[in-house]
Write a protein that binds this DNA or RNA. Structure first.
Lengths: 364, 364
DNA sequence: GTGATCTGGTGCAACGATGCACTAGCAACA
DNA sequence: TGTTGCTAGTGCATCGTTGCACCAGATCAC
């Protein structure tokens, strides 16, 4: 194992030149007679040859490694996503180099540049920044960039491919669900809303509120962290702090809240508990993302689920496969989120309505 | 950015040969006059030179990348650990290549070999297998291996460094806590116990039970998944299934359980809820690991915490720094876990004892 | 003044794969 | 028989760094 087989040895064993082996390896088989091809393939198998990645990259400038920049694998949603990306990439013969940006634009830029300089030409960037200016240099140099969790924006470079759920629709679904249960005081709970996906979720919330003939201005709101940027690890703290403020005895209490993601929702639930309230009875909570923990929570959390596995496959596919479209124009893939009904959402106390069926989870 | 500066250009700018630049870069400054050194350093800075990793690796066979093999970043504990490892590695100028083994020995071996073949010479392997036979070939070739979550075993190769908490003590602490609250029917809940850390936790549990004058054989137990291997993703399912079995109306119900990790504990809590029981009142639950979700849960989960950040730093330090000890003998670093008291553990119902103070979390 | 020793640095051949430019060999055609 | 055209495959320079082996020049001892 220490001494690796080189392309030369394979060539010698097959009775051809190294060039031919290289040609086969790189799919230049146009003018290769089947017999030769078989001899080479046999030699590769017999000797257990594996190309040296460093040499390949040095010579060609290319690499089989895929860069993945997520906000933080410490967050269960991104952890789960990273895992699915790895599975998908492995199936295509790629390694994954994982980086945590902590949602810091500067770290995003540094990582993307560093990956580029290491010869990595495909990156899945999980960002929600409105602009891609901070990485446009590298895109201009030819980086194949797939953004995740962020639909294409008008000013995006043409080559960028975007994969995301339709967050606007997600926000509407969540809010309509609560409206349908009879809630009329629904707050939207989020940390900073400057990212496009959060803004879209919020817009969806507003749209649904207004479509129901209510006014967003009348809804209880909480802006304690409005001006700040928050890492995902702090999402739970944000939710908890929001609960403390919104559910205070002297506050204009909402009967239900839409949380920008599950971690924030879980934090809110914890905060509600701090205030002596019972989630699902005193206040309904709906999350976003559909992480496993939502299912485990007490009460199990209703959530707008993102199809993580499917999205990971799509992202990897776009990042790895050579650009097929000759136009080179960027594409935006918008998947539709779906609501998973559990037990954190019920009709408000005042409404004497029957309990809603949950699609999953067991009855109390 | 596209055209990178090479060592030749730096050499030309500094008026020296490429060899001298290389010498400086690689710390062979023994016989270099300060003035020369400064000229080179200035040229490097002026031109913004960054060594080409592929060329370096091709030539030297070395790389600055650190391999990290975890069971699954989908599990919040490993996600959090991976994140801390990345932070620590970055501080030392290393990249991290992350792999998920799903606790499959074969995948562990394949990943370790592949990383080795890619020129990676330092790997942090998070495994709990009793034997390292499956990777001993690569260790023999000179791999610097740091195992995590698994104390050194008698048959380990001498060069392996092990970092872990003292799981036996952890098991004892958890169990003693419950015994101290007055519980006398305490079950240990785990998936397959074949891994050394799980076995150690279980032994700690047994030790504490017996030290209290009770018999392990008298404790309720559950072996539904005894023969199977379980990935971390399924940990919660295991806990839930255990709850369904152990808390069945006709069962010899425990009044408290020690879960092998937090995800299993959370699953158990969910299962208890399925059975109509209230955790912290009808049954006490203590977890292991100290993930953030434990703090968020309702009720907040008492847990035996692992000092993740410190352990990650240690692991990276050992993996990256050249072996200092001339003896080359493996070392085992055992950290002491600490219990974090929250609200999932109370005296059993029968015992008319006062409630225990929680060290964190807010009162109900 | 000659050889030995030391200092500070350089020359150059690798590492393993790539892919362009080239050609040996052969058939077809005039 | 000479020329052309084509097929199947090869030669070789090259990517950017490394580090051993070597060397020019200065200093020293006798």
């Amino acid at each position: 194992m220490g001494d690796r087989v080189t392309i030369q040895e394979v060539a010698a064993a097959a009775g051809v030149s190294a060039s031919s082996v290289s040609n086969l390896l790189n799919g230049r088989t146009g003018k290769m007679v089947p017999a030769t091809r078989e001899r080479i393939e046999r030699a590769i198998a017999d000797l257990g040859y594996r190309p040296n990645r460093a040499a390949r990259q040095l010579r060609s400038g290319r690499t089989q490694t895929l860069g993945l920049v997520v906000p933080s694998v410490g967050n269960p949603f991104w952890g789960a996503f990273a895992r699915e990306v790895e599975v998908a990439a492995l199936a295509l013969g790629c390694n994954v180099l994982l980086c945590n940006s902590e949602r810091d634009p500067d770290r995003e830029r540094r990582y993307v540049e560093e990956l580029w300089e290491d010869g990595i030409r495909s990156i899945i960037l999980c960002t929600s920044l409105p602009s891609l200016d901070h990485v446009s240099d590298v895109i201009g140099d030819g980086l194949r960039l797939v953004t995740f969790d962020r639909p294409a924006q008008p000013n995006d470079p043409a080559s960028v491919i975007s994969i995301s759920i339709d967050n606007n629709v997600g926000g509407q679904i969540a809010t309509s669900h609560l409206l349908g249960l009879g809630h009329e005081k629904i707050a939207f709970v989020s940390g900073s809303i400057r990212s496009v996906n959060r803004a879209a979720r919020y817009r969806g919330y507003c749209d649904a509120i207004e479509a129901a003939g209510l006014a967003v201005a009348d809804m209880p709101s909480w802006t304690g962290f409005g001006a700040e940027q928050f890492g995902d690890v702090e999402a739970a703290q944000v939710g908890r702090a929001a609960a403390h403020a919104l559910l205070a005895p002297d506050a204009d209490r909402p009967t239900a809240i839409v949380a920008v993601n599950d971690m924030t929702a879980l934090g809110f639930c914890r905060g509600a508990r701090d205030m002596g309230l019972v989630v699902g009875e005193d206040v309904s909570v709906i999350g976003f993302d559909g992480i496993i923990l939502a299912e485990l929570y007490d009460p199990p959390l209703t959530s707008v689920r993102q199809p993580i596995r499917e999205m990971a496959r799509l992202a990897v596919g776009e990042a790895v496969q050579a650009g097929v479209g000759a136009d080179g124009a960027g594409r935006s893939v918008l998947l539709r989120p779906e609501i998973v009904l559990r037990e954190s959402t019920y009709p408000p106390r005042s409404a004497a309505t029957a309990r809603v069926d949950a699609t999953s989870g067991s009855p109390r």
